[in-house]
Every structure is written in C-alpha cells, then in structure tokens.
Design a protein around this nucleic acid. Structure first.
Length: 156
DNA sequence: GCCAACGTTGGC
DNA sequence: GCCAACGTTGGC
C-alpha cells in the first residue's frame, strides 16, 4: 500500500466537492511523471492526501483513497474539453486517470506554512524545492505525522 | 501581478 | 540530441 499527495485548486475542485460527489475520476493530468505514478504505481486502496493549491491558504485539506486502477482519461478524446489532446491516439491513449474516493475532510486545512521546515516532513516530495508535480508519493513518516496532526486538531 | 522553477516544443 | 523559446505552476 502506497501513499500519495494530489493537488487540486479549490476554486475548481475542492475537498468539499469531493465529499459531495463521493468519488471522482481524476481527469486532466497532462504530465508524464504524474501519469506514470497513476499508471504504474497506484493501486486500489492507496491513501491520498488532498492538497489545496493556488489559493489563499494552501495545504492539506483532507483524506481520500484510490478507488481503482488507472484507465484512459476520456477527456483527452473530447475536442470540446479543455484537456483535449489531438495527438493522443485512441488505440494507444496517452493519458490515464484513477478514480479518487472521499474519505475525510480535516477539521482545518493543515497549512503549507506550518508544514514547511517540520523535520518529520523532511522527505515529503511536494515540499522539495521546485516541485510542481500535481501527484507525488508520500513517505510513511510524513503520512503518519500529518494524520496524527489531523486527529490532534480534531480533538482541540 | 511577480517571478522562480520546471516541462514541453520545435528548429537545427 | 541540443537548446532557446515559450508555457505552466503555484507561492507570495
């Protein structure tokens, strides 16, 4: 079982949207490295930290899980969709997605400003300098630490 | 809005 | 295959 962090812009799709829908096909990933994580390394049941980016308070907003294995992203074939990719052959689709299932909304966002510089999160990929990937692996230490913090603020 | 950092494109 | 130009991401 692996752990992941997936970024989303809350203006577009937030943890509340995921809660309302229950489950969402994670369409629109158009980066090869992120695609490879979904295609090659994700498995049903993997843990997901949902991260709000490009917003007033960036940080981890809640918990989800991978709901199945990767399959072709249908938006790549739709000329009217913003993620349409005319160079993706139907017989050999370039882009895949996984379904993501809602698990929990944290009592408050765990802010990026708080995460920065925490020794427990030293190996968290999304905090490494220059990282812009929308999907990154999460090491078990970081995972446990963030979940513990989420439980702590819930009791507060 | 600025800008650093990185990915992608395309000419050669 | 190199690399300059361009586009995107995302914090601030």
């Amino acid at each position: 079982m692996n752990y992941w962090l997936m970024k989303t812009e809350p203006d577009v799709f937030s943890i509340d949207d995921l809660e309302a829908r229950g489950r969402e096909p994670w369409s629109g990933v158009r980066n090869y490295q992120a695609r490879n994580f979904m295609r090659d390394a994700m498995a049903e049941g993997d843990g997901v930290l949902l991260y709000h980016s490009n917003c007033p308070e960036p940080g981890v907003a809640g918990l989800a899980r991978v709901a199945g294995k990767a399959y072709p992203d249908p938006t790549q074939f739709d000329p009217k969709n913003e993620y349409f990719d005319p160079k993706s052959p139907r017989e050999n689709p370039r882009w895949v997605l996984v379904d993501v299932a809602f698990e929990k909304r944290f009592a408050a966002v765990l802010p990026l400003s708080w995460m920065k510089g925490r020794p427990e999160l030293a190996h968290l990929a999304c905090l490494q300098r220059g990282n812009r990937l929308s999907i990154t692996p999460v090491d078990p230490t970081s995972w446990s630490f963030l979940l513990a913090e989420a439980r702590r603020i819930e009791r507060r």
